[in-house]
């Protein structure tokens, strides 16, 4: 049974197209767990048309059904076993004026328990339950998928909310530190506090990354990936991002992890140290190699690239895959070429 709270109206709506009687009931239990009545939750027009009385929400089965004892027996069976079939002749019940039409006919009723509801379907066709069976299966699968999607939505929302408040607190702490810095005379203390602010900033970025779901897996939409990463590092909206890629590009997860981290380092360098307002990233893959060219219009590193800006790290990542990296400072900014062989096993998965 899928983990869903089915909406009775939804069910009726789905069954409407079956052109059969359909009703959804809410069971009423006694203290021993026995079903002693069922209340009508939803029904379709065929169900209402067949009846001589006015069908209303919450109507009791005991009060309105022609043979309530038999109906409750079936319902209890359905509750335990999941489904049941019943043959029913309206003309042989206590009050046949319950139903329209006076001819003597047998109705086949198919009962099913769906997510806490009792669903009743009936029609004069003997094959009714087969189509219904198939239909129910489809509904269960659909609702199951939907519920899973909803659960995951919900989980994401909660995670976002939780992280939101954590980020707010760190943000507030950062502001507090920033505020106190102006009154500090000692230069090394000042520097230390700046470092702490930077660290807290990195914590915020990491949490944001985590929540925004930049993580594992292969890359199929490289442009989207670059933009997602750029979004993390741009506090303000003024970084223009241009991505070019020759043909379809699928980067398997083994290489994708490195590509993401290199993109992050490069973007972070461009924005934080280079004060760039634009990045151009291009990708190319041929039989020999996969290459990534990252250009920004920032102020660059000057002639002596400082350690700790991640360049060594990016280089090491390329080398670990048998590739290489070079950095070029030019008057328009910085260009980084990162390339790895495309014929080794990292590209097969």
């Amino acid at each position: 049974m899928p983990l869903v709270k089915l909406d009775a109206d939804d069910l009726t709506n789905i069954f409407q197209e079956l052109e059969k009687n359909c009703a959804v009931h809410q069971p009423v239990f006694d203290s021993s767990g026995q079903i002693i009545d069922c209340l009508l939750l939803a029904w379709n027009s065929f169900f209402a048309d067949k009846r001589n009385y006015e069908v209303r929400h919450g109507q009791s089965m005991v009060e309105f059904y022609a043979d309530p004892d038999e109906a409750l027996k079936v319902v209890n069976k359905v509750w335990i076993e999941g489904s049941a079939q019943q043959e029913f002749n309206p003309s042989q019940t206590r009050s046949n004026n319950h139903y329209c039409g006076s001819e003597n006919y047998v109705v086949e009723v198919f009962w099913q328990k769906i997510a806490g509801h009792i669903v009743e379907l009936s029609g004069p066709h003997s094959s009714a339950h087969q189509s219904v069976d198939a239909k129910l299966e489809v509904i269960e699968i659909e609702h199951d998928t939907e519920t899973r999607a909803q659960l995951s939505d919900e989980r994401n929302r909660i995670s976002r909310d939780l992280h939101d408040s954590v980020i707010q607190q760190i943000y507030a702490a950062t502001i507090g530190l920033k505020r106190s810095i102006s009154s500090i005379q000692d230069l090394s203390t000042k520097e230390n506090i700046e470092k702490v602010i930077q660290m807290l900033g990195d914590v915020i970025v990491s949490i944001r990354e985590e929540v925004m779901g930049i993580s594992e897996g292969p890359i199929d939409d490289i442009e989207n990936e670059v933009r997602k990463i750029a979004k993390i590092y741009t506090g303000n909206s003024d970084l223009a991002v241009f991505v070019t890629c020759e043909g379809e590009l699928h980067i398997p997860s083994g290489v994708a992890a490195h590509v993401r981290l290199v993109l992050k380092e490069a973007t972070s360098n461009a924005v934080r140290h280079g004060k760039a307002s634009r990045i151009d990233v291009s990708f190319e893959k041929n039989n020999e190699q996969f290459s990534m060219k990252f250009t920004d219009n920032g102020i660059g590193f000057g002639n002596t690239p400082k350690a700790g800006n991640g360049l060594e790290n990016m280089k090491f990542r390329a080398q670990s895959l048998g590739g290489s990296m070079n950095v070029l400072n030019h008057n328009l900014g910085t260009t980084l070429n990162w390339a790895v062989p495309s014929n080794n096993m990292n590209w097969r998965e």
Partner: peptide, 10 residues
Amino acid sequence: AAYLLKSAHL
């Protein structure tokens, strides 16, 4: 007028 991320870059 603008849309700003809460970040350490005050």
